[in-house]
């Protein structure tokens, strides 16, 4: 990166390598955004001026717009009709989207997980590639393929209407095993992970529960009713906004981080002090 003028071709290959192996690098997100803008967004902008999209739910023009967007940005992995693509060796390039519903699309595209830069074990949260109207159009299109969970209403996900204490109990019983006690996230097997829930919008938390994105299981409204989900959202937003009364939170990550701090700061500073104590004051 230090010699940008040398060879543009070399720079491109470095970029693509970065895309394939270092997707969680901060630069990768920007690179993905750029790539997406060029391949899909740019093409879409040429096809349909955004101002024409109506906000009415699932109008036929919206579905049509969604279909066009889908063909450009999603069909290469999920198939033209959203039926999914399975390669000859049996690996799934993109799963079928028939019946996943608008909620799944709103979550996956709305958190930037889709479109993915390349098929991978787990999609990352990254800057969103589409604007709100485009996401609504894509959702409407996928929802039109087969019935599935819908995007929740604003009042269903309002944290202020939830019971924080009850939400905490539900969260610890159903979610903390992967996302940790205050939603910091954690490691799963074979390089998968449960992402941090900090900064995730209530709507997306709700959608994740009803659709089960990536490795996450489904928690539908029959077993965890809407009110319970609202309580969980209320708990998450409460701990997110709650200050750390003891000082620096050090990630609320528990004993390993605390042990590192005890050695580095505690023992480190005290050894520094010990070195000062045994030296004589300045010589004449």
């Amino acid at each position: 990166m230090k010699s940008p003028s040398s060879r543009p071709a070399g720079r491109r290959s470095r970029l693509s390598r970065a895309l394939s192996s270092r997707r969680r690098h901060p630069l990768a997100a920007i690179a993905v955004l750029v790539a997406v803008l060029f391949t899909c967004g740019g093409a879409y902008a040429a096809l349909a001026p955004s101002a024409s999209v109506s906000t009415d739910a699932a109008s036929s023009t919206q579905i049509d717009d969604g279909k066009k967007l889908f063909a450009v940005g999603c069909a290469s992995c999920h198939g033209l009709g959203g039926e999914g693509i399975v390669k000859e060796d049996g690996t799934v390039l993109g799963p079928s989207l028939i019946g996943v519903g608008a909620a799944a699309v709103d979550f996956q595209v709305g958190t930037g997980r889709m479109p993915m830069a390349a098929p991978n074990a787990q999609a990352e949260r990254k800057p969103v590639a589409y604007n709100d109207e485009q996401i609504a159009a894509l959702s409407a299109y996928v929802a039109s393929l087969a019935p599935g969970p819908d995007v929740p209403d604003e009042e269903d996900v309002d944290p202020s209407a939830g019971d924080v204490a009850r939400g905490g109990e539900l969260f610890r019983a159903n979610c903390a095993q992967c996302h940790n006690t205050t939603g910091q996230g954690g490691a799963l097997s074979m390089g998968q992970y449960a992402p941090s829930l900090t900064g995730v919008s209530p709507k997306h938390i709700y959608e994740a529960m009803i659709t089960g994105p990536q490795a996450m299981p489904v928690f539908n409204d029959e077993t965890i009713p809407a009110q319970d989900k609202q309580d969980i959202i209320a708990f998450l937003k409460s701990v997110e906004e709650e200050p750390n009364p003891g000082g620096l939170g050090i990630g609320r990550a528990g004993p390993v981080a605390e042990g590192l701090w005890a050695w580095l700061i505690g023992i480190g500073v005290l050894i520094g002090m010990a070195t000062w104590i045994v030296t004589r004051s300045s010589k004449s």
Partner: peptide
């Protein structure tokens, strides 16, 4: 279900569901 103690109808469980 844990915490809420609601019986679970088999038909209500979707594929990929965890209770």
């Amino acid at each position: 279900t844990d915490v809420t103690f609601q019986p679970i109808r088999a038909a209500d469980l979707e594929l990929g569901q965890l209770v």
